[in-house]
Design a protein around this nucleic acid. Sequence first.
DNA 1: ATAATTAAGGACAAAGTTATCCTTAATTAT
DNA 2: ATAATTAAGGATAACTTTGTCCTTAATTAT
Lengths: 147, 147
Amino acid sequence: MFSKATEYALRATIFIAQKGTEDNKIGIGEISKAIDSPPSFTAKILQALRKNNKIIWSVSGPNGGFYMTEKTRKLPVRAILEAMGENEMLDKCVLGLAKCSETKPCPMHSKYKIIKEQLIELFETKTIQHLADDTKNGDVFISNKSK
Amino acid sequence: MFSKATEYALRATIFIAQKGTEDNKIGIGEISKAIDSPPSFTAKILQALRKNNKIIWSVSGPNGGFYMTEKTRKLPVRAILEAMGENEMLDKCVLGLAKCSETKPCPMHSKYKIIKEQLIELFETKTIQHLADDTKNGDVFISNKSK
DNA sequence: ATAATTAAGGACAAAGTTATCCTTAATTAT
DNA sequence: ATAATTAAGGATAACTTTGTCCTTAATTAT
Ligand code: FES
Ligand code: FES
């Protein structure tokens, strides 16, 4: 569905939302270990999330790291998708036509549209906070690790 | 959603289903023009569709080309996805966990699962024939071209 | 001030996807 | 048989995505 980069972005953001506050910032090492992702690549992605849409914050230096504010925790998942440039995905034609439209639809359009709308609704209503809370409760996971 | 290769595979198959019969085979040139795709790349994809799952047939030489039988026209869209190795996509975790499962779900799983099931159902119930018929009727399209 | 720590950023490497081109094989028409 | 036509298949190029590594900049602690 999404690129590796976006998958890492989603998992990393959820982890930061869970643990990172202004006075308890989290380093890239801990993040990438927690979400099971390549550290350097993940660092690049977090840079993007910080720069593009200001979803996360970071400080260099000792005790530095990444964190989120109350405000950005309330952002919908879609904000992450936007920052990662996956917006197009939610507006694409399944058969790859240049434009998914009502006026020149592909033969999958009428049925696919309904499903796509549900996807968009999901990404717009679920917030980062929701996902972080669920993960904190321990019934769902953002890593492949056994423990 | 799908790779370019799969998108071309879907559109090409629909076109062949529409026009290609054992005594009216269609050349790669006509196909790629009709579906707006790179000819050589499309040829490769059609080779795969022929080899992997026998969804389409072909003959070399003058008046050669691609065609389908009644039987393969009745295959669901999912058969094309399988032949193109996109099956994994329909079994993947949105957040990129190694496995999408009920026992170790990600925080998007419960909601996403419902949508994914609809997608799978769509791909399993829509047949190539359906899509070809709709396109023949002229209300839907498999090309970006104006005419 | 100096040293230590951590993210930012640039350069580059590896792998995967998309695309082209050319030669070969199959089939048909003459 | 020969020539013409068309798909099959191999080699390779262009581009994108994924990933690593190293240097620089920012911040903190001493
Ligand atoms: S036109 Fe193809 S999905 Fe909308
Ligand atoms: S576990 Fe993530 S979608 Fe099922």
